[in-house]
Amino acid sequence: MSYEELDHTADIRLRVRSPTADSLFAETALAMMEIVYGKSRPGTVERTIELEAGNYENLLLDFLSEVLFLSEVDYIVFSAATVHITGNSLQAHLSGEPFDPDRHRGGTEIKGISYSGLRIVKEDEGYVLDILFDV
């Protein structure tokens, strides 16, 4: 996974790099899981997400919010994700393991995914994303 934490005093700001938009979205979702739950193992619990939005930024925010929602209400720690973006539509398949308090309880709760400073840029080697999580 290729992400680095950028400086921010109050919250968590990440820079994620990935060759394609599909893999950028998937890696950001897994980075978010790692912040909330720490390290996780592969698992057999699966979920599918389908949604539409007007642009990449909104598609990403909606996708991450949905991952956070499913993870919280269904007590799943996602450890793998594949994403396919076609135009304004996104299809994602996620898998992971059930939440285990002994291993996953000590992470950092993400309260929200902010529009502030959200940036997706296409460079020669792929996509670069800056994103801020309220923790």
Partner: peptide, 8 residues
């Protein structure tokens, strides 16, 4: 300090 939207 630096937050999102409004400052904290």
């Amino acid at each position: 300090h630096w937050g999102y939207g409004f400052p904290i």
